[in-house]
């Protein structure tokens, strides 16, 4: 016992897997115990905290089938995840290559710096009214909200990851003959451009057919917009990726060496974006975890709020673990930090 407590106060003493898991379980048990004590008692008068402010553990768990079946929480989670995935994919598709370019061509970096600073310091909540004004009440607004909230951070972190690659790698690449090859750049960038075009047009197609108030479909020029999205996507993908793919020092050295850090930052930012989506879903969303929380607050049962929060945390944890597992497979030469 004495030994055990001594380990708790030893600096940087790493616990084994089981011991670490036990400590985490202890924390959960403690929170549940406090919750239980605060809400114990048959009647409201017997409790330390009344049931309106904080329902008891038992009451909360009892409402789970209700949340699962009547409120269809799984479907809402899928909607929330879909929105985040859409906006975040867009942010990564633009922020990552732009960040790589900004860290490779430092004049471009200086040029983009004001936008990056502005984008990272804008209050996220202020984007809600703005995106409502720009993109209406539908799904486009939610996707664009996530995009605008995260793109500057994705850009900044990607740029930082590339800047972190020591110069000696670049020097080595030059003395080994790494050069500019327009042909490779053209072929590669054309493929990336086509991919961007396909993804953007598909996204536009789905967004314009999504349920809910739909300003996109009201446009008479739907088909013109559809093709416009295609051309825009191609131009965007081509312009962003041509320099990366044409310069061997970037394609073969800077990008691959920075990639583990870029993916790691994407994982952390995705977690943040998943939290932000609740903000947008409070307004005019039929489905979504944010919508469920909002609805439960207004119409009850309030237990659903707590259950939703727990589910969100579990979901975010699962996604995080999934990406970590992916990182380990993709980058066997790089350790991913445990948190």
């Amino acid at each position: 016992m004495r030994e055990y407590f001594k380990r708790w106060v030893t600096i940087r003493e790493r616990p084994g897997w089981l011991e670490g898991a036990n400590a985490s379980i202890l924390c959960i048990a403690l929170v549940l115990a406090v919750w239980y004590v605060l809400t114990a008692g048959e009647h409201a008068e017997d409790r330390i905290i009344d049931p309106i402010t904080l329902p008891s553990v038992g009451d909360t768990l009892e409402k789970f089938p209700d949340l699962w079946f009547d409120r269809a929480v799984a479907r809402s989670a899928a909607w929330s995840l879909g929105r985040v995935l859409g906006g975040f994919t867009l942010a990564a598709a633009i922020g990552v290559p732009l960040g790589v370019l900004a860290a490779s061509f430092l004049r471009l970096g200086a040029f983009l710096k004001p936008i990056s600073i502005f984008g990272r310091n804008i209050p996220i909540a202020a984007l809600i009214p703005l995106t409502l004004m720009w993109f209406g009440l539908g799904e486009t607004q939610k996707v664009m909200f996530i995009f605008l909230a995260s793109v500057a951070f994705v850009f900044f972190d990607s740029s930082g990851a590339v800047q972190g690659v020591p110069n000696s790698y670049l020097d080595a690449a030059y003395t080994l003959g790494a050069k500019y090859s327009a042909r490779k750049g053209l072929i590669g960038a054309a493929w990336v451009g086509l991919t961007y075009a396909a993804v953007l047009t598909l996204a536009y197609y789905f967004l314009s057919r999504a349920p809910g108030p739909n300003d996109v479909e009201l446009r008479a020029s739907w088909i013109r917009w559809f093709w416009g999205m295609g051309f825009f996507g191609f131009a965007l993908g081509f312009a962003l990726w041509f320099p990366i793919l044409a310069f061997q020092p970037i394609r073969k050295v800077l990008l691959p060496l920075a990639l583990p850090d870029i993916v790691n930052s994407l994982r952390l930012l995705f977690g943040l974006a998943f939290g932000y989506i609740m903000l947008a879903e409070v307004i005019n969303a039929e489905y979504g975890l944010g919508a469920i929380i909002n609805l439960s607050q207004r119409q009850g049962p309030r237990e659903h709020i707590y259950l939703s929060l727990i589910l969100i945390a579990l979901l975010a944890f699962a996604i995080d673990r999934g990406i970590i597992a992916l990182q380990r497979r993709l980058f066997p030469y790089r350790q991913v930090g445990e948190h």
Binding site: P166, S168, Y169, D171, A172, Y174, T175, L176, G177, V253, P256, L257, L259, P260, F331, Y333, R334
Partner: peptide, 16 residues
């Protein structure tokens, strides 16, 4: 250029 090769103290082997 590759006609003048260089070897560094910190090796600079590409980790990936």
């Amino acid at each position: 250029g590759p006609d003048r090769g260089m070897v560094f103290q910190d090796y600079a082997c590409f980790d990936n």
